[in-house]
């Protein structure tokens, strides 16, 4: 794989909006051309070269890997709308990382701020630390958020993660989130998304879920009263084919949407 290295050379007082940092934008460009791509700092339009040392080479999108170093905790929108290739971020990263991406892979070796993987249409986002709020969520006012792809967060995800996730059986699209633990309102308005939590989750998990599967291997701090117990199961079959073994209590819900619902919440027995 062709590698392009970006090392940040300035301390940022304001957030830097770097939606131009994607394999799609870098592919086939010379280093000089990449340095001229726009970034937005406070009210000013500047260039990648103003903030980053750039080295390496790239050919085509699928064969391009961007490696980012330095403190990127205030750099927003890395990997926005990317369709292929890879980004490796060796730092904490700012808001909106990988939003609207439809292919390729982003690995964040650190924590991510809010809206990581928002409106994900495909591809894979991996975060080795914690993630902020609204992981894999729909943006304000959208009724369909994450439609495909996988988000893996080793640590905790913030509130309202996987908001308005939407699967499609005919298109075989199954948006999936794996996380260590989760804050309140995980999978709210779920329309077919799959969520697997290794640890505990906070209140209101699966609120207003129409259909979909949420598997919690730890505890739920306050189960919604509108969920009803169905029974106990020894394994959970996920729509993407994966099977999770273990004793779970199966709940149906959210019954605010329909009297009979296909929404399921599995909590470790």
């Amino acid at each position: 794989m062709d590698e392009i290295k970006l090392k940040i050379k300035k301390n940022l007082k304001f957030p830097l909006e770097a939606d131009s940092i994607t394999p799609d934008n870098f592919a086939g460009k010379t280093i000089a051309a990449i340095k001229k791509l726009p970034v937005y700092y406070a009210t000013k339009k500047m260039t990648i070269g103003d903030f980053f040392d750039v080295s390496g080479k790239s050919t085509e999108v699928g064969n391009t890997k961007i490696i980012m170093e330095g403190d990127l905790s205030n750099v927003k929108r890395i990997g926005e709308k990317m369709t292929g290739g890879e980004i490796e971020i060796n730092s904490d990263v700012g808001m909106h990382v990988g939003n609207n991406m439809s292919g390729g892979k982003i690995v964040v070796n650190g924590n991510a701020d809010d809206w990581a993987g928002a409106m994900l249409q495909g591809g894979e986002l991996e975060i080795t630390g914690d993630a902020g709020h609204y992981v894999g969520s729909a943006y304000r006012g959208f009724w369909q958020g994450m439609k495909d792809g996988v988000i893996k967060v080793k640590g905790r995800v913030g509130i309202e993660s996987m908001l308005w996730a939407k699967s499609s059986k005919p298109a075989n699209k199954w948006p999936t989130l794996y996380c260590g633990s989760a804050d309140a309102f995980l999978g709210i308005h779920n329309h077919g998304g799959t969520i697997v939590v290794e640890g505990d989750v906070d209140r209101c998990t699966g609120a207003d879920q129409a259909w979909g599967n949420i598997v919690v291997k730890g505890k739920v701090s306050r189960l919604l009263p509108s969920y009803k117990k169905v029974g106990e199961v020894k394994e959970v079959q996920l729509p993407n084919g994966e099977v999770i073994k273990g004793k779970f209590i199966e709940y149906s819900g959210d019954h605010t949407i329909k009297k009979e619902t296909a929404g399921r919440l599995y909590v470790a027995a």
């Binding site: 209101c204 609120a207 306050r222 919604l224 509108s226 605010t256």
Partner: peptide
């Protein structure tokens, strides 16, 4: 939130 949800259910 829980109260309104249960009213709706």
């Amino acid at each position: 939130y829980e109260l309104i949800q249960s009213i709706r259910a």
